[in-house]
Simulated scan of single mutants.
Amino acid sequence: MDHLLPLLSILVVAAGVTHAGSPSELYWRSVLPDTPMPNAIADLIKHSTDVGELALGHPVTKAMATSAKLRSCFFLENDLHDGAKFTLHFTGTGSRPSLLTRQEADSIPFTTTKLPEILARFSIEPGSHDANAIETTLEECEEPAGYRQIKKCATSLESMLDFTTSALRTRDIDTVSTRVGKEDSPEQQYNVVGVRQVTDSSDWAVCHVQPYAYAVFYCHTKGRTKAYMVSMVGEDGTKAEALAVCHDYAYESNPKILAFRGFQAKQGTGNVCHFQPQDTIAWIPKSYARLQ
């Protein structure tokens, strides 16, 4: 029996490694042990490419990271209620990006001044569509934050957790995101069957996946905005739990929101809302959230 002990020890260690999870999963558990990991992140971890070849300078992804799309409409907050109807098109992300660990991400330049080096590292042709997308993402990440806003482009899950917990000044956080019953549901009319407000506080943050050679999240705090989770059923029976964000644009000066103001001027007064795609994650302090 004694001769089996070394073998049993090896099996126990192997089992521990198997269930320990990736470095990103372990960091999540250490920072947010009481917060379930959202599907948007768990899915990225599940489909991430082996990045052991990073040291050789080879590409770590087979395809560019692209965010999920949502063909949606703007609407006023007063129009968000049971029985409301919206024509929406939820799409998947297609090829999922690799989610790098902090150590891996920090070893790669992330600045417009190093664009040629970045493109060469990932074998992306300068001037191509992918190269232009990478340059645009870098430029947006380098833009200064808006008025009373904190922002960061997180190149790893560890970096995203550090940003959100620091910006919100707590680790007692819930996450919410859009969930759809089908990976790529057709454009159709959805009927609202339930609405619940998840925050009316300015102390919350949101992270969006950006087009890049690996997973990059554009994260920023929200000011004078509300968030709702909206239960809907499509004409074909597809069920969706959609994250809706409503903005008070009377207090914002960003020229990018002029289109929203134009919509507001045509439709009347009130906060302007829109739905978020499936890979957008809202981070809400539990002390403010009204999650049911």
Rank of each mutant, 00 (worst) to 15 (best):
A213Y: 13
Y214D: 02
Y214K: 02
Y214S: 09
Y214T: 13
A215C: 13
V216F: 06
V216Y: 01
V216E: 01
V216K: 04
V216P: 01
F217L: 12
F217N: 00
Y218W: 14
C219R: 03
H220G: 03
K222C: 11
K222T: 08
G223A: 12
R224T: 07
T225W: 01
T225D: 05
K226L: 06
K226A: 10
A227P: 00
A227V: 01
A227S: 15
Y228A: 01
M229H: 04
M229W: 01
V230G: 08
V230Q: 07
S231W: 07
M232F: 07
V233E: 13
V233S: 09
V233R: 14
G234H: 08
G234Y: 08
G234P: 06
E235P: 00
E235W: 02
D236R: 10
D236Y: 09
D236K: 10
G237H: 07
G237R: 14
K239N: 08
A240V: 15
A240Q: 01
E241D: 15
L243R: 01
L243N: 01
L243A: 10
A244C: 13
A244H: 05
C246V: 01
D248F: 10
D248M: 03
D248K: 09
Y249P: 00
E252G: 08
E252A: 14
S253C: 02
S253W: 06
S253M: 08
N254A: 11
P255Y: 11
K256S: 15
K256D: 15
K256N: 14
L258N: 12
L258D: 12
A259Q: 10
F260H: 11
F260T: 03
F260K: 11
F260D: 07
R261S: 06
R261Y: 06
R261H: 08
R261P: 00
R261D: 05
R261W: 05
G262P: 00
G262A: 07
Q264S: 13
A265F: 10
K266V: 11
Q267C: 07
Q267G: 00
T269L: 07
T269Q: 11
G270I: 02
G270Q: 03
G270P: 00
N271K: 15
V272C: 03
V272P: 02
C273N: 05
C273G: 10
C273T: 03
C273A: 08
H274F: 13
H274A: 06
F275G: 02
F275L: 08
Q276E: 15
Q276C: 07
Q276Y: 05
P277G: 05
P277K: 04
Q278L: 06
D279C: 06
D279P: 02
T280R: 11
